[in-house]
């Protein structure tokens, strides 16, 4: 699988070179927008991380995990993922915060971290997306689509944990 990523770069850069695109300028332009993007993310990340620390230090997160982990472990989901799953529909930066945390705490190649990565990759911040997409519209009636999306996010989580075990 490892060859996929370099070959993507080679193909894209090769096509760009043939088309006489200024690859260097474009690439650094992309990096610039990445910088701006990260900078725009930083305040939210800081706020969410502070909240996470408080949540953990107060011992409330342990209580919630304890309450929910039987249900999740019944479905084959490790309890470390509980917080990630709960925050994912609400906030992209929040779930990213928990994702990096899970990876650092468990090691990048652990089962838990791999599950977390697959979960993160295969669901979206449902509420945030709905707010952005339908902001300017009058007619909404989004209950059903949101419910479906949340349900499929849960299915994705369960599936991710099952798949990581075999693959």
């Amino acid at each position: 699988m490892a060859f996929i990523i370099p070959s993507i770069f080679i193909i894209v850069f090769g096509v760009a070179a043939i088309k006489r695109v200024n690859v260097y300028n474009c690439f650094s332009g992309g990096v610039e927008s990445a910088f701006k993007f990260t900078l725009s993310l930083l305040p939210c990340l800081a706020a969410v991380f502070m909240m996470c620390e408080l949540f953990e230090a107060s011992g409330l997160s342990a209580i919630i995990i304890k309450a929910l982990s039987p249900a999740f472990s019944f479905l084959g989901v490790p309890e470390e993922l509980t917080k990630l799953i709960l925050i994912k529909p609400l906030s992209g930066s929040g779930s990213l915060a928990y994702l990096t945390r899970i990876i650092t705490e468990n090691g990048a190649d652990s089962y838990v971290a791999r599950c977390a990565c697959v979960c993160y990759g295969s669901s979206e911040t449902v509420f945030y997306v709905s707010a952005v997409y339908f902001a300017g519209l009058k007619q909404k009636k989004l209950l059903r689509p949101i419910a479906i999306s949340l349900l499929s996010a849960l299915i994705a989580t369960i599936l991710a944990c099952a798949l990581c075990r075999v693959m």
């Binding site: 894209v12 850069f13 760009a16 695109v21 690439f27 650094s28 992309g30 993007f37």
Partner: peptide
């Protein structure tokens, strides 16, 4: 990734 995306 955004660098690559910009080139693409």
């Amino acid at each position: 990734w955004m660098g690559l995306a910009a080139v693409a």
